[in-house]
């Protein structure tokens, strides 16, 4: 009984993970189809620059300048869906819509660290 419950839980969480991943992939694909506004991206990126250094240097916080857009969009969606955990980032992305995420990702893809 205990063993089968445990097995069921494992299956359930596996399914949950799979469906979260599918949801993330779907949202990432949709966002990557948008045409981002560079001026908006530059403004929004100011919020990131307090911690993520524009020069790309890092000590304790990862660099993000120059990351490909699909990587950034995926990371931000993962914070939104709880796949990635960091309290600061979870709060930062909470009010970012698709247009904002697309604009930020395009902005950082353009940066040369």
């Amino acid at each position: 009984m205990v063993a089968s419950l445990a097995a069921m839980t494992a299956v359930a969480s596996g399914t949950e993970e799979d469906s979260l991943r599918a949801e993330a992939d779907e949202r990432v694909a949709a966002i990557l189809k948008l045409s981002p506004d560079p001026a908006y991206g530059a403004y929004l990126a100011g919020d990131c620059a307090t911690c993520h250094r524009a020069s790309g240097g890092s000590d304790g916080i990862p660099p993000i300048a120059g990351l490909p857009a699909d990587y950034t969009v995926n990371a931000l969606i993962e914070y939104k869906l709880g796949i990635r955990e960091n309290e600061v980032m979870v709060v930062r992305v909470a009010r970012l819509g698709d247009a904002e995420i697309a604009a930020l990702a395009a902005h950082f893809a353009d940066q040369k660290p």
């Binding site: 620059a49 307090t50 911690c51 993520h52 250094r53 524009a54 020069s55 240097g57 890092s58 000590d59 304790g60 916080i61 600061v88």
Partner: peptide
């Protein structure tokens, strides 16, 4: 704590560089 060290480098670069 390590995140705070990274933040300090970040805000200093963002402010003064």
């Amino acid at each position: 704590y390590e995140e705070s060290i990274g933040w300090y480098s970040g805000i200093i670069e963002d402010t003064f560089a």
